[in-house]
């Protein structure tokens, strides 16, 4: 595969992940709207939707989506800093890259911990 010919770097992997999470979040926007439509349609429709969402596969999707959202958010801020001309040297780009990975994981964990504690 690609790994034999191409040495992966953190920066390129994060860049690709930004795209992948972006497309994933586009699909996630459909989920948000379906949730709103179910809510607008009445208790029965909402129940059908909530059933799927609270099932194991629904929770897995939600976990993936929440991380994707928080990753895209953190890395998006990194991109905006670049657009303003900050953090372009290699060392800083790597540091901010690691920071984005850690921040997105920590934020996801905190969000789920708070949600589960409720």
């Amino acid at each position: 595969m690609l790994g034999r010919y191409y040495r992966f770097q953190l920066t390129s992997v994060l860049s690709f992940a930004h795209r992948v999470t972006g497309v994933g979040l586009s699909l996630g926007s459909v989920l948000l709207v379906v949730w709103l439509l179910a809510l607008a349609s009445g208790p029965w429709a909402y129940e059908q939707f909530a059933k799927h969402l609270s099932a194991w596969y629904g929770q897995c999707l939600l976990l993936g989506w929440s991380w994707a959202l928080l990753y895209h958010l953190c890395n998006g801020i990194r991109h905006l800093a670049w657009d303003l001309g900050y953090g372009f040297d290699l060392k800083t780009a790597y540091r901010s890259g690691y920071a984005v990975v850690v921040a997105s994981l920590v934020l996801t964990a905190v969000a789920w911990a708070l949600a589960c504690l409720r």
């Binding site: 926007s29 459909v30 948000l32 709207v33 709103l36 439509l37 809510l39 607008a40």
Partner: peptide, 13 residues
């Protein structure tokens, strides 16, 4: 379609 459906659902509620 998704945007209009979402706005419609919010307004309806």
């Amino acid at each position: 379609l998704v945007a209009v459906a979402g706005i419609f659902a919010v307004l309806r509620i």
